[in-house]
């Protein structure tokens, strides 16, 4: 027998508290407020780039550790996964959609991994280098020639690690 659903009417307390016809922000976002919100994001953009540079430095160090300390690989993998996730979520917010795209590529690549072998480390390293290029050139768009070149080289690197792909002798 199917269980009965109980509908619980929303008390609407929050709406009563906050919604009115006199004070506050219009429910339909006006241009001026939108601009102010976007300006706030823009104001934090430099800080975001600084933090991304630090994050990428940390990833390079972590990769160095993975290469010399096999026992640390799992920990390094977790660290890279977390950093990739953060950049994926933040890049586009601050006007760097390419950072989001490439960090997503890295995060997707790492998603199912439990270890980082040499080839996988190399692919992570290529991602990190590519992210560096975006940051250092302050690439805000996503459709130019350099962007296409970066995208293609990253795809080629990821394809190398796909199961069944043979590397050239």
């Amino acid at each position: 027998m199917r269980s009965k659903a109980q509908i619980i009417p929303n008390r609407g307390e929050l709406k009563r508290k906050a919604v009115n016809y006199k004070t506050g922000m219009d429910i339909k976002l006006d241009e001026a407020t939108l601009k102010k919100m976007e300006q706030l994001v823009e104001n934090s953009s430099a800080q975001f780039l600084d933090e991304t540079v630090e994050s990428l430095k940390g990833l390079r160090e972590a990769l160095g550790r993975a290469a010399t300390e096999p026992a640390a690989r799992r920990e390094v993998l977790e660290h890279i996964r977390e950093e990739a996730f953060q950049i994926k979520g933040m890049g586009g917010v601050f006007g760097y959609p390419l950072l989001t795209e490439f960090a997503k590529s890295l995060h997707d690549f790492l998603k199912e991994l439990e270890d980082l072998d040499e080839l996988q480390q190399e692919i992570v390293s290529i991602h990190v280098d590519t992210l560096y290029v975006v940051v250092s050139h302050r690439i805000k768009g996503s459709g130019g020639a350099l962007e296409a070149q970066l995208r293609a080289s990253l795809k080629a690197a990821v394809d190398k690690a796909k199961p069944g792909t043979k590397t050239a002798p």
């Binding site: 509908i7 619980i8 009417p9 929303n10 008390r11 609407g12 929050l14 709406k15 906050a18 919604v19 429910i27 976002l29 407020t33 939108l34 919100m37 976007e38 994001v41 994926k88 979520g89 933040m90 890049g91 586009g92 917010v93 601050f94 959609p97 989001t100």
Partner: peptide
């Protein structure tokens, strides 16, 4: 994420001004 300011505002309006039954 990444979200836009407009997207964020619309979600705020929705949860505050358009409460749903449970």
């Amino acid at each position: 994420k990444p979200f836009t300011a407009d997207g964020m505002y619309r979600r705020l309006v929705s949860v505050i001004a358009r409460p749903r039954d449970f």
